[in-house]
């Protein structure tokens, strides 16, 4: 069993923030786009395919949060290695979790872009590809957040 230290607390908090904020942000993004999608298919059920694809895009920030939490738990040794976690390591893990959590807020904006993309597809189906491209733009910052978290762990030599 891992010994309770302040470092463990920070590491777990980091994992919780990464997953928690990722989940909430993706939930909101998928929610907004889902409402829009239902509006579109209530008028034109044939648009279900494009609507589903657009609705799926804001989910990725939740996946990054999930991934980030696992990296934190494995990297700090909460899962696997049974060694006390120092305060410094815990704080590094917390920082990694925070950056993933904060950048996951882009899922809310991405959901709104996806909803607007559905409106465009409803009116002009040929804009589907362009709508996807524009929706994915918001994703880049969440990807940077995940990358920074990974770099933090590489920097402190845990991965």
């Amino acid at each position: 069993m891992v010994e309770y230290t302040i470092g463990l607390f920070y590491a777990l908090l980091g994992a919780a923030i990464a997953m928690g904020m990722g989940g909430i942000s993706s939930g909101l993004g998928v929610g907004v786009s889902g409402v829009s999608g239902i509006g579109v298919i209530s008028e034109d059920p044939k648009k279900f395919g494009p609507v589903l694809v657009l609705q799926a895009l804001p989910q990725t920030q939740g996946i990054y949060g999930f991934l980030g939490a696992i990296i934190i738990l494995i990297g700090t040794g909460v899962l696997g290695v049974v060694e006390p976690i120092s305060e410094e390591v815990g704080l590094a893990a917390l920082a990694a979790g925070i950056v993933i959590g904060l950048t996951s807020i882009t899922a809310v904006a991405q959901g709104m872009i996806a909803a607007a993309g559905m409106h465009s597809v409803a009116k002009r189906p040929e804009t589907f590809g362009q709508s996807i491209v524009l929706t994915v733009m918001a994703e880049t910052f969440a990807i940077f957040g995940l990358l920074i978290a990974i770099l933090v762990f590489v920097g402190i030599k845990f991965i």
Binding site: S36, G39, A115, M118, K123
Partner: peptide, 30 residues
């Protein structure tokens, strides 16, 4: 984070009731 969350939720609460209506209207425009 609280400030971000507050601003995001406030905007979402404002537009949420109109998202469905707008989607239906856009589909009708087609």
């Amino acid at each position: 984070v609280g400030i971000f969350a507050f601003l995001a939720c406030r905007y979402l609460l404002r537009i949420a009731p109109l998202v469905y209506a707008t989607a239906v209207i856009r589909a009708k425009e087609a």
